[in-house]
């Protein structure tokens, strides 16, 4: 067991770390894109009267299609039809972002609809424009409420990002499977990868938890009393 661990995991630690770096890169850009797309879809769905049908269709499509299907769809279909993800990494980022943007849009919407309606009416009565209401009154409160769910979605993105290995993005899973297929010794490598993802996601959720409590105490309702 120990010899195998040294031989397959430690000897290939550099490759695996490269893979981890690619995973982080893909997840970061996908998550950023997902937040932007989700916010846009959410605001269109709530505030624009005619375009909201399109936004609803987009959100439902993103939420109801499995990530693997979206990944293969974006990777094989989009370059021929739309012509733009020219690299596999781009396709992976777009597919992960598509999936998460649907979920995030609904999360943001639940946050916006949780606010008391009186605040919006009061802001309108004071004479604020629509954009100013969103940016000054609603967004700060929604951000505070929605933050744990958004971090949850980040965890989902990291977990889904293991799938991008099948369109040959050299992420952690891809590098690990390459070693497995080279030596036919799955135990040590795959267990190490599983533990790595576990540590990564556990760290994300713990850090986010502390940050959430900190921000709640500093800026939340309790702080203004």
């Amino acid at each position: 067991m120990i010899e195998n661990f040294n031989r397959f995991v430690l000897a290939n630690a550099g490759t695996l770390l490269d893979g981890l770096w690619v995973t982080a890169y893909v997840c970061f850009w996908a998550f950023l894109l997902a937040i932007v797309l989700g916010l846009i879809a959410c605001l269109i769905r709530m505030r624009l009267p005619y375009a909201r049908v399109v936004a609803i269709g987009y959100i439902e499509f993103c939420r109801a299609t499995p990530i693997l299907v979206q990944l293969l769809w974006v990777n094989y279909v989009w370059p021929e039809v739309f012509g733009f993800p020219q690299t596999v990494t781009g396709a992976g980022v777009i597919a992960l972002a598509l999936q998460s943007s649907g979920y995030l849009a609904e999360t943001f919407r639940s946050g916006f609809e949780g606010l008391p309606k009186g605040q919006r009416e009061a802001a309108l009565a004071v004479g604020m424009s629509r954009w100013r209401i969103v940016s000054r009154i609603e967004a700060p409160q929604v951000g505070l409420v929605v933050a744990p769910l958004v971090v949850n979605q980040l965890a989902v993105v990291v977990k889904s990002s293991t799938l991008v290995s099948i369109i040959a993005i050299p992420d952690l899973m891809y590098q690990g499977l390459k070693i497995v297929n080279q030596w036919y010794e799955p135990i040590e490598v795959l267990t190490t990868i599983a533990l790595t993802y576990f540590a990564l996601l556990f760290a994300i959720s713990r850090i986010a938890n502390y940050a959430y409590v900190y921000f709640q105490i500093k800026f939340g309702i309790a702080s203004s009393r």
Binding site: A155, K159, T162, S165, M173, L177, P186, L195, S205
Partner: peptide, 23 residues
Amino acid sequence: TASPICSGLICGRHRVYFVLPLI
């Protein structure tokens, strides 16, 4: 409860397929 949630699904799948028979 934490461990299956946190280690990715696909990794779990491959682990069961490859590793469980060996164990």
